[in-house]
Amino acid sequence: MSWAQSAFPWIGHVVANYNYWIVIVLMMTGFYVLISRGNLIKKLVGLNVFQTSVFLMYITMGKITGGTAPILGSHGEPVPGVLYSNPLPHVLILTAIVVGVATTSVGLALAVRIKEAYGTVEEDEINALDAEADS
């Protein structure tokens, strides 16, 4: 690895920050599903993948190498010499997960209603039906 690092200094950066790269891959996977698939349920799954990648990014930012979970000693005092990871991103993401599933359920409810109204959840078929109704 050392020769590679001296030849391409960015490789070390890439390897050290692999978490960020996974975030990008996941985010783009979710984005791709979202924009390329016509099925509304599949779109919601893609949106969930996208969401998870954002969660992962926040948690990655909160991590400190050699740190531990932010739970202090039994009397609420930080144990000396122990490095704690940053609790703030954890709080934000914790609530975001629950809100995410609540909004996903609204999306699913909408998909169900669309299915009942149009008989399909495929985007292009819905558009065709709409165009038919307009003409």
């Binding site: 739970i71 039994s74 914790l94």
Partner: peptide
């Protein structure tokens, strides 16, 4: 208060 967990997890 003392270990991982809290309102959101408990509700779920």
């Amino acid at each position: 208060d003392y270990s991982p967990g809290g309102g959101f997890q408990a509700g779920v």
